[in-house]
Nucleic acid binder design. Structure first.
Lengths: 247, 247
DNA sequence: TCCTGAGTAGAACGGTGTTCGTGACTACAG
DNA sequence: CTGTAGTCACGAACACCGTTCTACTCAGGA
């Protein structure tokens, strides 16, 4: 009996086996008919949809039609939409490259991992919403946690501080990318350089603020400043440079 | 002609008038019939639902039945569900108390505001999801931004750093409360002290991890440590203590 | 040859946000 | 007092969502 999706998901959460579960014989590609549906095909199709149209457009029905089938067919391979979300961020985390910890370069290494996460999240806009729900349960997400922990420990950070820091860092990356994504989808999906005009518009709005907002009006330039990921780098620097190192 | 909800929302986003828009005569309470539906009544009912059953349960239909009417009746006062979300976090932010900036106590003041935000978000579990979408557009949210900015400036923080910092702080508070909320709803809503048993369960899971997770297994205690809001305080401290002060 | 059982779908259920058209009601002009 | 205009409330309906029930196909074992 090949495992039901429920069993597969339970196994994924058991956190015991490190990847067992040999692909169960896959009955027959059966020569003709159509392509058989696999979990991998579902995930790939889902990623395609999210990359093209954003996470909002990711519905069971859209995935099904992308696979030229009905919605119910997916439920033989996936427990839930929540389960699909988990699989998505699992595969996303699986693609993160974790460097060998180098005590001399721990700072740039940890920033590099965070930037990888950020770029992956932004590549699939809105998917951070799924990441919030699936965080810290999947094995693949734990792998990047392990990698980040190893980097900080190699850098001589106190274990307790390191443990809490990787949590905060991951949380911030999620939140940052989520905010960016919803801001993007908010004002139409005109990609490209329209964030510049958006900045001028922002400045105009700040200038039009009532007088009960003196600081915001005065420092409107600072509030709207920052190209691309300046804010991101700033906050990461704040969190990293403050970490206590007993040595 | 009394303003349509669309106009009202547009005015809310215009950021010009500082609260104008005198309550437009409110035709007649009309003595009898039933209670007339107002935007305020809608918001209050919505808060009640979220507080009792979480943000997931907040549907137009639920609000409507709470007001003893049909769903379509709400759309005379509210543009959207998105609009309702915005109104909710608007009122929530309006309830935040902003202290008079004191250069001697800027640190505890900024932490206090963040803690207020955190507690409000946690009081209405899941509402941070709405906050992510509505951030930085509403006038009430800008008010707390202004207050935080004033505190940091009074503390002698560089304007650019202060501007970016309030953004990061607000973002982190949102993310932290959102994660806590989804974690709560994840394992049934048994309130109270079941997070203790959850911690032992977590330790057991970490112990059962494969050997490719040496650091996570070794520092499982640190990873699962922290009572209540220790993690929150830790991260806030990281972000605040690292702020550059030219003086 | 039949039988079994996993994988595939079609149809349907209950739920969501939102819109349309109708009706009741109030306030005001004649 | 009557007619009219305009606002508001509401039932019904639409399109879509996640999910389940059920029948059906069809390769492999007996």
């Amino acid at each position: 009996m090949s495992p039901t999706p429920q069993q597969r998901r339970a196994a994924r959460h058991r956190l015991g086996t490190g990847q067992g579960d040999a692909p169960p014989a896959r009955r027959g590609p059966s020569g003709g008919r159509k392509k058989p549906i696999t979990v991998d095909a579902i995930i790939t199709a889902a990623f395609g949809i999210v990359e093209a149209e954003g996470y909002e457009a990711l519905t069971m029905r859209r995935v099904a039609t992308a696979l030229e089938t009905g919605p119910s067919s997916l439920y033989a391979h996936v427990v839930n939409k929540e389960d699909l979300d988990e699989l998505l961020i699992g595969r996303l985390c699986a693609g993160i490259e974790l460097p060998e910890p180098d005590p001399e370069r721990w700072r740039e290494q940890i920033v590099g991992v965070c930037a990888q996460l950020r770029d992956q999240y932004l590549r699939y806009p809105g998917i951070s919403r799924a990441a919030f729900a699936a965080a810290s349960s999947n094995l693949d997400t734990l792998r990047v946690g392990e990698g980040m922990l190893a980097i900080l420990l190699a850098g001589g950070i106190e274990p307790q501080a390191a443990a809490w820091a990787i949590d905060s860092l991951a949380l911030y990356v999620n939140a940052y990318t989520l905010e960016l994504s919803v801001a993007d989808t908010r004002l139409g999906r005109t990609g490209g350089d329209d964030w510049v005009v958006s900045r001028e518009e922002l400045l105009r709005r700040f200038a039009a603020l009532p007088d009960s907002f003196p600081q915001s009006k005065r420092y409107a330039a600072e509030l709207t400043a920052g190209t691309l990921h300046d804010r991101f780098d700033f906050t990461l620097g704040l969190m990293i440079d403050g970490l206590p190192r007993p040595r």
